[in-house]
Design a protein around this nucleic acid. Structure first.
Length: 551
DNA sequence: AAGGGGACTTGGAACGACATGT
DNA sequence: ACATGTCGTTCCAAGTCCCCTT
């Protein structure tokens, strides 16, 4: 079995680790003299440090970010820290700053890049390939593995998502002195760039990362880790789905228990049981507490507040309807209105009693309490396992329900995408409709119309041919029919997918063995479902799953 | 139990390369 | 050859969960 050979029992992740360290962002290149900055209408030459930060803002001039108050305030504050005392004395108002020549310059640069000749583009591509070959791989135990991100993040302005209090702050440049290297003692250690030193070199084989640094916005640690195709990531992924399959075996018991707990005398147990019901039924995230003012105000299950929920004893013929409306991860809105069991409803009414909108719905619960309880119900069980389990089981059920054995391959793939879509909707994976959506739908419709015309012409010819007892045009009609059907399927698929993002569920929630088995069962080439990168990530599953695999 | 640090997974958008049609 | 749309890749933020300290 592919993972067994290298598993360690003592919690260590590897015995040998060798790599070249990260690639750093290129140094700042000052603006050419002809590109000027104006303050209050007057030309002003900036010091290199101040100019660099100014260019970060200039690059974002066309973005909505740069008009937001918080963004501008944070930027200006951090920018001033980079100025000389002379600059600081003059530049006191961001509204009097004119970055437009810098902005034009970057636009021209990007245009020039597009206009480069084939040879120039090829040269850049080769240089990138060389860098990848040199720095993009490491040796972990006996394998050469691809590194996920071998570059440090370049400096720039922080762009949080949603209403982020830190948007616009300066993300500082990462230097070798910020980097902790992790590798094995007996490996050839990476060399810092000439004239510099690493912050530290350590040999910790209880972790999987190769290098790390502390980022200055939140003070959190960033890592350089392996690519999803690596053994270490694949094995972890496989384990994740095995845990979810474990839940499948005992989910009935757990559901019976939490339904029972809705009647508990203890408030904390009732809250735990209702929260778990939400996590199971609605696939909500756990909802850790967050430090106020440090991040956007978003919530998950355990951190839901009174203001996020409405109870309707009766609404449009339905009883006991719960309305949830809150911002979840990445400030994506979750909105759902659904009937629940009477007991759940009554409990929720109880939890809401005598509370203010900003109070916690589950005031006797947090993720740590919940996960401790889950751990007792099943080894390795945590809140997120429910999302994985419900996503994967939904895919499997939907595939069973939607696939018609006699359908053509495109029609079967539409069924697959619809099953995938059911999961994405469950997990609330939304996207902004693509900017070109309407137009591309129109184009597709034009193609369909043309194809229909072609078909009717071909059919007329066929009739004529038959009347003449000549050779049949039947083949031709069939071919056009097939093309038409393909286009129609494509249109349906695209329309249904307007605001749904399939990628996240496909990559993180759906046991790939379900898809592999489905492909084998219905003779669909795996390339139709997974692209090259995805096939590399899921190599273990492609290797493992037969057509009768059951999640 | 509270709080913070650390390691790892999950997430949508931006970017850029490539395919396709003209 | 060029423009345009599509799709894969990269980016890096934002979650989860565990562990340690107090």
């Amino acid at each position: 079995f592919i993972f067994q050979e290298e598993r360690y029992t003592d919690g260590s992740k590897w015995r040998f680790l060798e790599h070249k360290g990260p690639v750093f962002a290129p140094p700042y290149e000052p603006m050419p003299n002809k590109v000027r900055f104006y303050y209050d209408g007057k030309i002003m030459k900036l010091s290199a440090a101040a100019e660099e930060v100014a260019t970060f803002f200039a690059k974002m001039l066309d973005h909505e970010y740069s008009t937001k108050d918080v963004f501008r305030k944070n930027f200006f504050k951090d920018w001033r820290k980079e100025m000389t005392s002379e600059e600081k004395a003059i530049i006191t108002d961001l509204n009097k700053c004119n970055f437009s020549e810098m902005n034009d310059y970057f636009k021209a640069q990007s245009e020039a890049r597009k206009q480069m000749s084939k040879e120039e583009k090829k040269k850049i591509k080769e240089e990138n390939e060389r860098l990848l070959q040199e720095y993009g791989f490491c040796i972990m135990d006996n394998h050469k593995e691809r590194i996920g991100n071998f570059r440090t993040e370049p400096p720039g302005l922080f762009r949080g998502r949603g209403d982020h209090p830190k948007m616009g702050m300066l993300k500082r440049r990462i230097r070798p002195e910020d980097i902790i290297i992790n590798c094995s003692k007996d490996s050839k250690q990476p060399k810092p760039p000439p004239g510099s030193k690493w912050k530290e070199v350590r040999h910790d084989n209880k972790v999987t990362w190769l290098a790390s640094w502390t980022e200055n916005i939140q003070g959190s640690i960033k890592y350089i880790m392996l690519n999803p195709s690596s053994r270490i990531k694949g094995e972890k992924d496989w384990q994740k789905y095995e845990t979810a399959r474990c839940l499948k075996k005992c989910v009935d018991r757990i559901r019976t228990q939490y339904r029972d707990d809705w009647k508990s005398k203890e408030m904390r147990i009732r809250q735990r049981a209702v929260a778990l019901y939400f996590i199971d039924k609605l696939a909500l995230r756990a909802g850790n507490e967050k430090e106020e003012g440090e991040t956007a105000d978003t919530v998950g299950c355990c951190s839901l507040r009174v203001e996020h929920i409405k109870l309707h004893p009766k609404i449009n013929d339905q009883e006991f309807v719960v309305e949830l409306d809150f911002l979840g991860k990445d400030s994506i809105r979750y909105y759902n209105k659904m009937p629940v069991e009477k007991r759940v409803f009554k409990n929720l009414q109880l939890f809401l009693e005598n509370k203010q909108p900003e109070d916690d719905l589950f005031d006797r619960l947090n993720t740590s309490i919940l996960n401790k309880h889950l751990q007792e119900l099943m080894d390795g069980l945590t809140a997120k396992v429910f999302r994985t389990y419900n996503a994967s089981i939904t895919l499997q059920q939907q595939l069973k329900e939607l696939t018609c054995p006699d359908d053509s391959i495109p029609a079967k793939i539409l069924s697959y995408n619809r099953a995938n879509r059911a999961v994405a909707i469950l997990c609330n994976h939304q996207r902004a409709p693509p900017k070109t959506f309407e137009k591309s739908m129109q184009n597709l419709q034009t193609k369909i119309d043309e194809k229909e015309k072609q078909l009717s012409t071909a059919r007329k010819q066929l009739k004529a041919a038959k009347a003449d007892h000549k050779a049949s045009h039947d083949e031709k009609s069939k071919k056009i029919e097939e093309q038409l059907m393909k286009l129609q399927v494509q249109a349906t698929d695209r329309e249904e997918n307007k605001q749904i993002a399939l990628g996240t569920s496909k990559l993180n929630y759906l046991d790939p063995r379900i898809s592999v088995a489905w492909c084998k069962k219905y003779g669909i080439p795996i390339e139709k479902i997974y692209n090259k990168t995805q096939r590399e990530k899921f190599a273990w599953a492609i290797d493992m799953a037969e057509k009768d695999y059951e999640f």
